[in-house]
Nucleic acid binder design. Structure first.
Lengths: 222, 222, 222, 222
DNA sequence: GATGAATGAGGTTTCATTCAT
DNA sequence: GATGAATGAAACCTCATTCAT
């Protein structure tokens, strides 16, 4: 399901690589269990004892690796934000360095890539999103990664597209917010609000691509 | 602060009306305190004792009115969803029953209305959003209100606009998702990610209106 | 066993008066249990669960009254230091305001009083002594009570005795240290190092009185 | 710093000699760390993990040398009590075997010796004192050393002095208690209640000597 | 001989909830 | 109707100790 454009990191970023901090098998199981339970029940709604049970370890084992429950949360969330997000950027650059016949092709490449990312890491992203308002530590990571690693290259690319007349001359922040909003709307619909309906992912993705392209495309003569 | 277009419910839905369940001053203070703390710290992250202290009542007083903590959550969230949302719809109908020179004017009327709504109730909405994944009760209310009270009239209106050639012929779900996504992106940026930057609300709103109009406007000849 | 000179506080300072903070019977039982266990096993060596069990209450009951275990320690120790010690002083003043045929009679009155005090409160005193090095809070109380309420009147009395030629002209600190050291040596021997031997309290007290009198009495011609 | 009268053991009893049980550098570091932490935080208030960290070894290393934490406590405290105290006695005997012009010279020699001892080992003594009530093992050592090695020769010497008319005919236990009480009062003031005041050690020691001499000296004609 | 990982038992504290007054 | 006291259960976390490597 991952198209070739998705980039190399998809294959590499197995959990073993992602959780390179975890030296032991048990440590990895702790992270796996925490990831799943935090995603399902929220951070505050999950007891460390539940995580321990699900991981098949003692509760004390958790606290050997993480001084506090909050440290565990960071331990689960940070790698994805720190390691994966920058890898994404590298891929975006690859995508953008190619030539596209029109904005639509570009958006299509981007969206396919992004939805694959969301599909792969949706549980961690869900946790990060849910806990963002309550944990300054997570906000700090997001701020840092975004401002330092995502915003500058993305701005550059947007400026480039706008210079070529392929995109409306909107502020880069607004462009990014638009793409993120619409993609997130798609993802929320798809992954977080499971309404049990059948979901034709490919078709939906095409519609999303169309919407973004239309919203951001160059102004036509009225 | 609420423009005239905002509709009648704004004036009516003071907290006293909203919390019509609350017969006594104390009851209202409990709901106020719970609203604020749930919004700030999340449901699971807020102790009933904290709510009691902030409300200036005994903990037992809370449990006189609500059998369980979860009941209190519902008591805080449900009125807005049940009372306010339908009132919104009534207003939307009013908005839509008028004639507009073009889609843009319509979207403008809608967006102004919606952002006022978000501004007014953003804390309750935040709670509802945050707790949606964890509480079937809230999901049920949202489902019910949405499916029964919001979706049908909105669909009808969308179909109407599409019939008039003012809007792309997209599925009503997608149209609504698009409006919601972009408005929510705006609101999140505005209310939940306080980055401390100055924020020119009127200008930003114009941009939002432009984006939605462009995304959903009728297909131009290529 | 308390001679008339012992003063009024002995009769008054029952635990009910001492623990006036304790509104409930259970609260008092908590303080009683904590007092006993801290004295027997030390603060760090006593679990709150043990205190709860001995008091016949739930562990949570302890933490309703005292936010932390340390607060409980202070709650046990402070009243004796704050309420009883100053009452002592008042009595000392009474003792000293009388006329005595010689230093020995004065020391006798004092020692009887002091040993009665130690006998009455030896467990709290033991705790205070044991925990003094580890808890700045207790040190602060001792400092305050001593410097503010004990030292000044005692100094005055000592100066008075020295002026009358009844006592060696030593610094008041040293006089007090001598009395306290010898009395404490007596008390430690008597109450804290239970060597199981029979102990003729009255006779020992006489010896103590003699020693103090001799040590502090006026210099004889050599 | 140690005057000549202090005796031979001062030079010998470096920690290396004292902790002759410790074969390795690490073992010695463990004992050093335990000594310091037990003195500062008490036995029950010190975690083995803290000791390990301060010693720069693994926690397991501690348990290689000592089966339990209590064994470590004994390992820290016993040598001083078993090795140093008897050495003291030997010195006392030396001191006492000399002839003194009067009781005061004798007391002076003793006190100088004893305060030097306290200065040298005050941390171990502090631990022993603190933990005495809670550990039968320590009490047993103290009892044994005292009853077997200190009491008999000291009694003999006291009897000797009393026979020579240099000392009041008090029970040897009381004589020893008096000396210990007053010296301990001095030491507590000096080492354990650091009140931050300047402290003229030599002058204070003279006063202590005077007090003991006066308290225990022969009865003058009244 | 030393360690890092692991743990069972238990530490203090908090929680939502009940109940006598 | 309101409260302060009370609590069982469970929260997070720490402890002394063991053991495979």
């Amino acid at each position: 399901m991952d198209s070739g454009a998705t980039g190399r990191y998809q294959q590499m970023m197995t959990d073993e690589v992602l959780w390179s901090q975890a030296g032991t098998e048990k440590h990895r199981r702790i992270l796996d269990a925490a990831l799943e339970m935090f995603a399902d029940q929220g951070y505050a709604g999950t007891a460390t004892s539940e995580i321990a049970k699900k991981a098949g370890v003692s509760e004390a084992a958790i606290f050997r690796h993480y001084k506090t429950k909050k440290d565990l949360l960071i331990g689960v969330v940070a790698p994805v934000l720190r390691v994966v997000a920058p890898a994404l950027i590298a891929d975006i650059k690859g995508i953008l360095s190619r030539r596209y016949p029109d904005l639509r092709s570009l958006v299509a490449a981007l969206v396919v890539d992004r939805t694959a990312f969301v599909r792969r890491y949706h549980r961690v992203l869900r946790i990060a999103l849910q806990e963002l308002p309550f944990h300054a530590e997570i906000r700090a990571i997001v701020d840092e990664v975004f401002l330092r690693e995502i915003f500058p290259p993305a701005s550059e690319t947007i400026a480039d597209l706008q210079a070529r007349g392929e995109m409306m001359p909107l502020a880069p922040e607004l462009v990014m917010r638009t793409i993120i909003s619409l993609t997130a709307g798609f993802a929320v619909h798809r992954y977080f609000l499971r309404l049990g309906e059948p979901f034709d992912e490919a078709a939906e993705r095409e519609l999303l691509i169309g919407l973004i392209t239309k919203a951001l495309g160059p102004e036509r003569a009225d």
